[in-house]
Design a protein around this nucleic acid. Structure first.
Lengths: 352, 352
DNA sequence: TTGAAAGCGCTACCAT
DNA sequence: ATGGTAGCGCTTTCAA
């Protein structure tokens, strides 16, 4: 492969020790020698062997991400890719590598154990936390620095996390639709054993509750967040005797399927029906018709990935600090023409 | 971290040598001893340290993927995530790790060099090849086993690749639309310095040519494959004096933006206008209205990732073999009600 | 300011 | 069938 330290040292008539020190910025090395070494290293395209270095130092300069494959929506979800892109960016800036492990979700816990036991990573990011997620206790017990993307309700012990304020996001979106006069608002959610989905539902319920409305279970759906689900959910919901006039969607893919179903049924977006979705950015639409609110845009997800990566790196370099947390607020963007047009469809109440 | 081989050996009153041999399935070890060792390893949750092992063997059991970040559509593209998922699956089955490196695309070549020079990977997958892509010569020269996802026109030296038959795919899609009577077919393509995009355009042009039609440059668009692009392209194309009656899209995200724009302008999918897109799977639609053809579905992309991974692994384990290649054909799925309805919009010709 | 040598955890060669 | 030992490429005491 590449040149080794020993070879480089020999070519310079220096000891490996000195060369190592020169390259790693140790102060005791002569400025002249250092320059000589640096130049030679550059010319020879010398890069220290990661494996050897980490064997010697005990640090791998790698962060692990485990993806459970049966959560097929997880990896397929474009939002996931954005998060990974952001994290990867932060890693490479810091000279870290990202190790991705895709496993059948039955092997998930073992995948975490393995990565650690084999000394493959210095830290980990936990994706898609569920309620009471056992991975948090596992990693804590193993003593690995880690950051959860999301939180896990039911886990009491402290841990580091970065999350979007899902509750607030959906509460606000619901309030907004209520203000527009909507009374039948459908919630097309992710699986509610996922922590984020539960928080979103709670936000939705809270808003309804505060408006003195009783939630209709028929309007609440949950499943893996795919276009297929969005499509079938919308189709079925519109067949109800008293169909919803607005939809809250948990994912851009769901929203795509959902809008498609609505359109095929002749609904006009933003007139006959309103759709608000999380994790999407339709700001290019001329007047934000059915997207009065972006609860999180693509680029904010990338920011989240970057931020989460920086958090693990920080935990690694300064092990003393307590758990780090970061709650990201979402952005409200209201287009010009938002609710359904008056009278375009029977409605419980007049709009403001 | 975990237990070491030495510790395990000590606890068994055996030499590290024997334990290593027992665990690695060397034949000369006593069956009884082997069982004893295996059990103890299991109990202690022993996993050999990857770094130490690869230092000793010279093999890392890792495959590298470099993603150039300014190609923002590349990672954001859900299809990319599917490919990675498929590859990751194959890796973990084979006991390999996936190392992902996200770099600003100015550093791309160096990122490849680095990964190799630092001995971080045994092989690589090259993503998003452009015309005459220099990475192929680079990796060949470095002597690393690698597989290209796609091909690079202009590169003469042989190399291993896996590609979808983009030319044929788009030729067939175009022919199909021509048969339906369409004469003005828009091509909403990826950037044409990307090899796949050029092949798709060629397929489109060939079909037009064979039908005796002259391509209209005004109907051909290329840009990064985002919804934003799809939306603006469709909007602008529909403003033409003689707008297209059908669209060929290179990506599901583009198609989403594109359909959205069409719908907002009052077009009815599959009646006023037809849309065919690559890399999407809308088979859940009731009658496949505007999706008569899937040139590649999500799951086929995952298969491609799996297959590409298996190819690199094979190159690594059997270095002798010549370049491996794999051309995947796409699937034609025609829905019940495909072209625009007769007379719904001015048309050059009657439909069949 | 520089170098020699030990050792990180493992495999592989050479003995026994 | 089992063990001793060298060495993978690097960092890091300890000496000079």
């Amino acid at each position: 492969m590449g040149v080794t330290l020993k070879e480089l040292a020999a070519s310079l008539n220096l000891s490996p020790t000195t060369v190592s020190r020169a390259l790693n910025g140790y102060p005791e090395v002569n400025a002249k020698t250092r320059k000589r070494v640096r130049d030679a290293a550059e010319r020879a395209n010398y890069h220290p062997n990661t494996r050897a270095r980490s064997l010697a130092t005990g640090r791998t300069h790698a962060i692990g991400h485990v993806i459970a494959l049966s959560d097929s929506h997880e990896i397929v979800n474009p939002v996931f890719a954005d998060f990974i892109a952001g994290a990867g960016e932060a890693y490479s800036r810091a000279g870290y590598e990202m190790v991705l492990s895709m496993v059948p979700d039955s092997d998930e816990a073992q995948a975490y154990r393995d990565m650690i036991a084999r000394g493959a990573v210095d830290g980990m990011i936990v994706h898609g936390p569920k309620l009471n997620d056992p991975r948090i206790a596992l990693l804590t017990q193993l003593g690995v620095p880690f950051v959860v993307h999301g939180r896990s309700s039911g886990v009491d012990a402290p841990y580091s996390w970065l999350d979007i304020n899902n509750n607030r996001s959906f509460r606000r979106a619901t309030e907004f639709l209520l203000q527009l006069g909507h009374r039948r608002i459908a919630l097309v959610n992710g699986l509610e054993n996922m922590d984020f989905a539960m928080r979103r539902r709670n936000g939705y319920l809270q808003a309804l509750h505060e408006a003195g409305l009783t939630p209709d279970p028929a309007l609440m759906r949950q499943a893996e967040m795919t276009e297929v689900f969005g499509h079938s959910a919308a189709t079925e919901l519109m067949r109800l005797p008293d169909p919803p006039t607005a939809f809250l969607s948990s994912s851009m893919l769901v929203a795509y399927g959902l809008r498609r179903a609505l359109v095929d049924q002749g609904c006009r977006m933003g007139r006959d029906v309103s759709v608000i979705t999380h994790d999407d950015d339709l700001s290019y639409l001329p007047n934000g018709r059915d997207v009065p609110l972006f609860t999180a845009t693509r680029s904010s997800v990338r920011d989240a990935g970057r931020k989460a990566a920086e958090m693990v790196l920080s935990l690694i370099s300064a092990p003393g600090q307590g758990p780090l947390t970061c709650l990201m607020e979402t952005t409200l963007i209201v287009g010009e023409s938002t609710g359904p047009a008056p009278g375009s469809r029977p409605r419980d109440t007049a709009r403001q």
